[in-house]
């Protein structure tokens, strides 16, 4: 139902979108920049990562006056296909959403050396350079997780907090490492319980498993649980609601998934990253390589608004902001392993 509704809304949206006057035969100098964005297969409408990238694109259209088009591939083999559609058209900048595009971006970037590419979460293989016309957008999730650890440690009454990871891989280890470090920095006596849901991608889609892990952590005394586990986290929220403890969301603001039981969400601002890349392209400052976004670049953060203000004690907020200032000023190094 929700899905069909969103499909209908998107249809309406795209119908209205098309009524915009098309700039015909405009001079290259005055013509707005055209950006092409390729979603992951089935990515659009995920309320997270892909949608966040799209918000960045829309913001750029509004604030920077660019034009954009997007493609949703229907099958894995269409990822490269879609990138090439844009590359062979008049799109100087092409954005791919997701690490899964890494190979495809490499191939197409090689075939179209004059075009610029940006890949969100581009997977850097050790010892391998990013092609000169590709920007790899990476996030220092450990930094925002550090703040999460600070808030959790200073909010907990039992002095025991939990972490539920999705799949046991280096990407998720960054969240865990930052969280642990933040908790220790705020209060060395706080105990951190850590579990992962599994070793396959299924671990990101298993709410039942998430609930089971969360309940066992609660049984061990945890009263705040941070999850970095996709929809597995929905089970964590469920456990929080059942046992009246607090949970912490990830990537985007998850307050609405369990109103009143979400302490805060550790966000990853893909929209910000997308916006910044477009800005650089417009300013002629596009340069291949890795762009890492942390707290300083506003690429990551945590939610503090009217919904959860009341849940976060003043001291926790205070210390978290102090930590933020230290990290931004490079006075505090956050571990990622």
């Amino acid at each position: 139902m929700k899905r069909s509704l969103s499909v209908a809304l998107l249809l309406i949206f795209s119908m209205t979108a098309c009524r915009r006057p098309q700039p015909q035969a405009a001079q290259a100098a005055s013509a707005p920049l055209k950006v092409g964005l390729v979603f992951d297969v089935g990515g659009r409408g995920d309320k997270s990562f892909n949608d966040s990238a799209f918000r960045g694109l829309q913001r750029a259209a509004k604030e920077l006056g660019i034009k954009y088009d997007y493609i949703e591939p229907a099958e894995p083999a269409d990822r490269e296909n879609a990138l090439r559609q844009f590359a062979s058209g008049d799109y100087p900048l092409i954005i791919a959403v997701g690490f899964i595009f890494t190979d495809d971006v490499n191939r197409v970037a090689e075939a179209f050396p004059k075009k610029h590419f940006a890949c969100v979460d581009y997977a850097l293989e050790p010892g391998q350079a990013v092609p000169p016309n590709v920007v790899a957008l990476k996030f220092r999730e450990q930094e925002s997780s550090f703040l999460g650890g600070v808030i959790a440690a200073l909010t907990s009454k039992t002095k025991t907090i939990g972490f539920v990871g999705g799949m046991d891989v280096p990407l998720i280890h960054k969240f865990e490492a930052g969280y642990r470090a933040g908790a220790a920095w705020a209060d060395a006596k706080v105990k951190v319980l850590v579990s992962y849901a599994g070793v396959t991608p299924q671990a990101f889609k298993d709410p039942a498993k998430g609930e089971e892990i969360a309940l066992s952590q609660i049984a061990q005394g945890a009263d705040i649980i941070y999850h970095a586990s996709g929809s597995t986290g929905l089970g964590v929220f469920e456990a929080a609601r059942e046992k009246h403890i607090l949970a912490m969301g990830v990537d985007s603001d998850q307050y609405k998934d369990a109103p009143g039981f979400v302490l805060t969400s550790i966000t990853k601002n893909v929209d910000e990253a997308v916006f910044q890349v477009i800005q650089r392209q417009l300013e002629g400052k596009f340069k291949g390589g890795v762009i890492e976004l942390g707290l300083k670049e506003k690429g990551v953060g945590y939610v503090y608004d009217e919904h959860n203000k009341a849940l976060i004690p003043a001291r926790a907020r205070e210390q978290a902001e102090r930590a933020r200032a230290l990290i931004v000023a490079d006075k505090l190094q956050v571990p990622f392993k």
């Binding site: 249809l11 997007y70 229907a74 269409d78 296909n81 879609a82």
Partner: peptide, 18 residues
């Protein structure tokens, strides 16, 4: 149909091809 859906995705929604 599939390739046309992709190639025309910037003009018409992919759902139409589905």
């Amino acid at each position: 149909l599939s390739q046309a859906g992709l190639a025309l995705n910037t003009v018409i929604p992919r759902e139409l091809f589905e």
